[in-house]
Simulated assay, not measured.
Amino acid sequence: MMSDTSQPFAISDAPLGGLPSADTTLLANAPLEVAICEVRFTAESIGVPVETAERVRNSLSESLGIDFTSIQPATQNTMEINLNAGGASWSGDETRGWQIASANGQHSATVFPGSVIWQVADYKRWSISMRRPLDMLLGAIATDLSPSLIQRIGLRYVDRFVDHSCLKPQDWEGKIDGTLLGPICNPGFGSLVTGAQQQVELALDGRHGSVLRHGPIPDPASKSINYLLDLDVFANATWPFRVEEVLDTAERLNRTALSLFQACVSSDYLKSLQGEGQS
Rank of each mutant, 00 (worst) to 15 (best):
A121Y: 05
A121I: 07
G139F: 15
T143Q: 14
R152V: 08
G188L: 15
E201A: 02
H208G: 09
G195I: 12
I150M: 12
R152N: 10
R207Q: 05
V120A: 03
S210L: 06
G178D: 14
I117S: 00
I184D: 00
N186A: 15
E201Y: 00
Q197L: 03
D135P: 05
V200R: 02
A196T: 06
R131Y: 00
V158H: 09
I150G: 08
R131N: 03
I153Q: 03
G182E: 06
M130S: 12
P169T: 11
S165W: 03
C185T: 15
P169Y: 14
I128N: 04
R125K: 13
L212F: 08
T179R: 11
S127W: 03
G209H: 07
W126H: 08
R160M: 11
G182M: 07
K175R: 10
I117Y: 00
D135N: 06
Y123R: 11
D171P: 02
L137I: 15
Q199R: 14
S165H: 04
Q197D: 02
D177S: 15
G190H: 05
D159C: 05
P183F: 08
I150A: 07
Q197E: 01
H214Q: 10
L149Y: 04
L149K: 04
A121E: 07
R156K: 11
Q119F: 01
W172T: 03
L134T: 00
L202M: 15
V200S: 02
V120W: 04
D177A: 15
K168S: 06
V158L: 14
L138R: 01
H214G: 07
G182D: 07
Q198S: 15
D144M: 14
T179A: 12
V120P: 02
T143I: 13
D177W: 15
K168Y: 03
R152K: 09
D144F: 10
R207K: 12
L167I: 05
G195H: 11
I141H: 01
R213H: 08
V120I: 09
A140E: 15
G209R: 04
E173I: 13
H164A: 05
